[in-house]
Design a protein around this nucleic acid. Structure first.
Lengths: 170, 170
DNA sequence: TCACTCATGTAATTGGTTACATGATTAG
DNA sequence: CTAATCATGTAACCAATTACATGAGTGA
């Protein structure tokens, strides 16, 4: 479900082929992962079926013809609507970043709201972690303690990054 | 890779019911996500089928009886073997943390190797990001730039955390 | 010569969620 | 008197991966 709209969102920046989409997504693989071809082609077909995109077949010497997909007005509308609906309070980092990339294409205010929302969520998590870590539970193994420690470090930097970014944007 | 081995690994710490497993996993939900009951119960059944765990049914006033699963010798062996095999070079953060939690239950040397491996991977990623960011490409949107910026911040703290942790462990 | 990039696609299978059913007990 | 917690489970569904097929061009 989420890659569907993410791919649709990429097409707001410029028309692309399935292959292009995959290459683009690859550059974010470390952050959000990248779907396989067996996923992106059918997704594009489904988008086409729903009239959210159009195809433009471009002939290509020797190689198979490239199929360039463009977003339609209906597609933009569907995307806008999807972005508008509220975010799941315990959405993953991946979901946050995907929305971040999409939100920036649409409205500055929406982008800022999204960052603020994320900040609140991470703060809540950081709080709960501090309680867990400070509690004198002796039932936790080394691995758990390391993972919690990692979580605190990650959450702390994320909040710092969010604050820095929010300041830069206003 | 999946939750199969992760759940099996939890049972090395102590015998647990499916409900316990889920609760435990919940505390790591922010970091690695938590599977639903519709996933953990069948996983436990499959583990039992393969003789990697045993059940112990404990009667429970009014409530349904608790089914306490314990890891078997074969289970420990399978887990050891699984952890022994090489890690995918572009494994996700989630995969890294899952292995981290498991590795700590087994051998100190393996844990350290795992952290070092991760450090090398993150360093490679950080390097590639710096090249992308420094390149004067004007084709990237605001969202992309923000995501890359986030990636750099996250990778930098992760490396710092890994170094700190490795030092503490030796 | 071998492997990789470009470029599309389909089919089988996996791994997981959602939504259900059951039912006593406790907290607001 | 309602909602949540405890506690198990199944079945329908869905997203995505894996593995395949096709085939020319390029670089080591």
């Amino acid at each position: 479900m989420s890659f569907r709209y993410f791919i649709l969102g990429l097409l707001t920046q410029q028309p692309m082929s399935g292959y292009d989409v995959k290459r683009f997504l690859e550059s974010f693989a470390w952050l959000i992962g990248s779907p396989s071809f067996g996923s992106v082609y059918p997704t594009l077909h489904a988008l086409l079926e729903d009239d959210l995109v159009t195809v433009d077949v471009v002939q290509n010497e020797g190689k198979p013809p490239r199929k360039i997909y463009s977003i339609t007005q209906a597609g933009r509308h569907a995307l806008q609507e999807w972005i508008g609906q509220p975010v799941d309070p315990d959405a993953s980092l991946k979901a946050f970043l995907m929305r971040l990339i999409l939100a920036s294409n649409l409205s500055r205010a929406g982008l800022i709201a999204h960052l603020q929302q994320r900040r609140a969520q991470v703060a809540v998590y950081l709080d709960s972690l501090e309680q867990v870590v400070e509690a004198p539970a002796e039932t936790t193994g080394l691995g758990q303690r390391l993972a919690f420690d990692y979580g605190m470090a990650a959450a702390t930097t994320e909040i710092a990054w969010l604050d820095r970014t929010l300041e830069r944007l206003s």
